[in-house]
Write a protein that binds this DNA or RNA. Structure first.
Length: 220
DNA sequence: CCCTGATTCGC
DNA sequence: GCGAATCAGG
């Protein structure tokens, strides 16, 4: 019992050190990665490492593809940078095989869902809601023009899951689309993640920025 | 511009 | 083994 371990010498990777991949950190990495967290998020959580480090580790651990069984990942595109020192390509038979002998019986499948509307395949269901109920002062909508029914439908959906933020809660990354009447209690901002560069989320960008087409000049 | 992961290669 | 730099795509 002579072994002293003051303050848990082990695994005491407090900030400042080299920050190595201790079992604990690797564990966290696996957990989060398997959980669908992005490399940057993981890096942020771990601290002391960049997302590159995380990605690098992820690959070395061989748990790159989050997909599960059978899901053939889109083959990577090895952009072999030609090195000036390299002469002639090795004709060696190097089939880029993808072993992946690891079969994870644990839960799989990412919880990611993407819904994209195409100008052709539009699964609209109840888009017959183009008319706003009461005399609500319309938001910054460009005009009373006919916004794509798809877009409108989408917005209606989104407004159900909106974060309903107050003015003070808005940040650079929250959708600033106002909903309701500012003069009443029933007023809030969407608050969902904004589309990069834009002030609104995807759905609201859809109705906010009309490409000035679909603008049927139906002058009566 | 923001973000994502993938890959390469010097350390 | 590690991760910055770079690449490629959204």
């Amino acid at each position: 019992m002579a072994w002293r371990d003051p303050e848990g010498y082990l695994a005491r990777e407090t900030e400042g050190s080299h920050m190595s991949w201790t079992d604990e950190r690797v564990e966290t990495l696996k957990k989060m990665w398997g959980d669908g967290q992005s490399a940057s998020q993981i890096a942020k959580e771990l601290g002391g490492v960049t997302r590159n480090a995380v990605i690098g580790k992820v690959h070395r651990l061989g748990l790159s593809n989050r997909a599960g069984t059978g899901a053939a990942a889109p083959a990577a595109k090895p952009a072999p940078k030609e090195k000036p020192a390299e002469t002639a390509e090795a004709p060696s038979a190097k089939p880029v095989s993808k072993p992946a002998p690891k079969a994870k019986p644990s839960m799989a499948v990412a919880i990611k869902e993407e819904l994209e509307l195409d100008e052709n395949g539009i699964p609209i269901s109840a888009a017959r809601r183009a008319i706003i109920p009461a005399g609500q002062p319309l938001p910054p909508q460009p005009s009373a023009n006919e916004i794509s029914p798809e877009a409108l439908a989408k917005v209606n959906e989104v407004e159900k899951t909106a974060k309903r933020l107050t003015l003070m809660e808005l940040t650079e990354k929250t959708c600033k689309w106002p909903v309701g009447d500012p003069a009443t209690e029933d007023f809030w901002f969407c608050g969902l993640p904004v589309q990069q560069g834009k002030p609104y989320c995807e759905a609201h960008v859809g109705v906010a920025f009309q490409p000035m087409s679909a603008r049927r000049d139906r002058r009566r």
